[in-house]
Amino acid sequence: MLKKTAINKISELAAVLMEKGTLIAPVKEVSGHNFAQILDPQKVDLDFYNTIMSPKSAFFPHKEDFINYKVGKPISEAEPVVLNLKPMFLFGVRPCDVKSFQIMDIHFNAAGIIDPYWRQRREATTIFGYAFDLSKSVDSADFYNTLGIYAADPDGSDIFMVKKDNELLLKGITLQGKKLLSELTTIENGKAADKKYFEEYIKKGRDYKTRFMCLDQETITKKLEDIFHNTDFWTRVSSACLSCGVCTFVCPTCYCFDICDDTQFGRGTRRRVWDACMFTDFTLEASGHNPRTQVYQRLRQKINHKYSYHVRKYGVISCVGCGRCTRYCPVSIDIYSIIEEAIKT
């Protein structure tokens, strides 16, 4: 099923989705676009390259409250926070970011103990993937091709969207997506030409080139294991690293978090908050011991986690090549170049 709507009528579609549930879509902020819960349908803005923050926060919010408690009161009076989710629509996600959900799913929703928050949010959500605009030039930081992802890759989306001139074509990919699309009666059905355009667009997406290197998962994993103790290498590639958390916070596949209690006036909330392996106190133990005191150790952890540990543990590289870490790094550290260099080492 393929439907379409005029780009300038997106707000109408948004309004319909908002009636059905919670709409999360890109909005324009001063510094760029970001996903946000839409309260005013006019705010949905598809004129973006990619958002600053990845859409992971839709399922893994920066802060997730677990439980509210009162100091001095019996523990049984503490109240777990119930999500009470309405159907959620995550609108306008670029293919590389869509891919990230599949990677994160393994961690939160398949392996070991299931994370109830991720699962509930994920299950409530329909993902509207959105192909990159092939008429615009690719950002030099991106390298999702390297990870086998293409600019107009519908895989993982429930509904996939392609821009055609002033129109937006929407195609149901999964059953869930198809069903939802059929319920969106206010938008018109696509014509055969649209269908053709859509299919060709998907194909053309393969020719839309980001940075690319031939990356064999096992080879890079092995390579990183081999050079783990090559301190010279890690010191060199981390010499500019500030050890801030930008790369991990903008990353669609970074999931480290901290659990903290925030109490005031005897009432408090236990919650999880994003954390980053780049922070010095990330591994600081109560005893004062810290196994990772050096910048190179932390950068090594991050890169190994994505390209080695994650492969060993879950069988897949935990990176989608969206380029955010490179783009927003204050000192332009480029994970792609580091991997490239690691292979050559």
């Binding site: 939160f108 999931y255 480290c256 901290d258 659990i259 954390d275 591994t283 133990e285 986690h305």
Partner: peptide, 19 residues
């Protein structure tokens, strides 16, 4: 021993290599 938070393999801080 490593610094732990979640204790259930989710929070990502107590790894030694891939474990």
């Amino acid at each position: 021993e490593m610094r732990m938070k979640c204790g259930i393999g989710k929070c990502g801080r107590c790894n030694v290599g891939s474990k």
